[in-house]
C-alpha cells in the first residue's frame, strides 16, 4: 500500500521554514518558506518553486484541543483555509513559540474550575458558583446532560447558557466537597 501519509502531502511548519511576528497592531502573523499560495485552482504554468513569503495575519487552531493542546496546531488564513500544520510547538523556540502560545491562550481562554462553592439544580437549570483560576465566577446552565461534556474519564468541559466554557481539568484533583457536588454528572 502506498502510504497515504505521503499522498496527503501534509505541510508541516517548523522553525526552519516558518517565522512568527506580530503585525503593527499586535496580531500574530507569519513568514514561511513555501510555494506561492495558489489563488486560482486552475491557473496553469504557475511558478511553484518555494520561497520565503509573508503570509500576514494568521490564525492558530488546535486540532486536538483536549488531548494535545500543544501539538497539531493548524495555521489558517482569515477564511479558514489551512496554510499548514505545526506538529508540536516545541518545533519553535524563543519569540516564535511565545507568539504561538500567547495567541492560543487567547483563543482558548477558558476558566478552569478549582472549587465548586455551590451547585443548585432547579427546574431544569443548574446554578453554579465556582472558584476558577481566573477568580470567582457564577453561571447558570441548562440541561446538564448535554452541556457537561465528558472529554475524558476525569476531564469535563461545561458550557453555560450563554455559551461560555468552563473546564475542570481533573475531577479527582478537586477537594472532596466539590467532588461530591459534581459526582452526579460523572
Amino acid at each position: 500500500m502506498k502510504n497515504f501519509l505521503d499522498l496527503a502531502e501534509l505541510k508541516y511548519f517548523t522553525s526552519d521554514n516558518a517565522k512568527m511576528y506580530k503585525t503593527k497592531n499586535g496580531f500574530a502573523a507569519m513568514k514561511a518558506f513555501m510555494p506561492p499560495i495558489k489563488k486560482d485552482d486552475l491557473a496553469e504554468g504557475q511558478d511553484n518553486t518555494p520561497d520565503w513569503q509573508d503570509l500576514g495575519r494568521v490564525y492558530f487552531h488546535r486540532m486536538f484541543p483536549f488531548d494535545a493542546p500543544d501539538e497539531f496546531i493548524s495555521v489558517l488564513d482569515k477564511d479558514g483555509n489551512e496554510y499548514g500544520i505545526i506538529r508540536n510547538i516545541t518545533d519553535f523556540s524563543g519569540e516564535d513559540a511565545d507568539i504561538i502560545n500567547e495567541f492560543l491562550a487567547r483563543k482558548y481562554l477558558c476558566p478552569e474550575i478549582t472549587k465548586v462553592i455551590s451547585l443548585k439544580e432547579k427546574l431544569g437549570y443548574s446554578y453554579w458558583e465556582v472558584e476558577t483560576d481566573k477568580g470567582k465566577m457564577s453561571f447558570s446552565m441548562h440541561d446538564t446532560y448535554r452541556n457537561i461534556a465528558r472529554v475524558s474519564d476525569t476531564r469535563l468541559v461545561l458550557t453555560d447558557v450563554d455559551g461560555n466554557r468552563f473546564g475542570i481539568k481533573d475531577v479527582l484533583a478537586l477537594d472532596s466537597k466539590s467532588y461530591r457536588k459534581i459526582e452526579l454528572y460523572l
Binding site: K24, R106, K107, G163, N164
Partner: peptide, 25 residues
C-alpha cells in the same frame, strides 16, 4: 468568534486592529 469568547476587529490603514474582546455573555 473564538472558542467561548470573541473579539471585534476592524481594518485601520489596511492593518487589522482590535477594538474590544468579549465573552459569549
Amino acid at each position: 468568534q473564538l472558542i467561548s469568547t470573541g473579539r471585534v476587529t476592524a481594518l485601520r490603514d489596511n492593518e487589522p486592529v482590535l477594538i474590544f474582546n468579549f465573552s459569549s455573555t
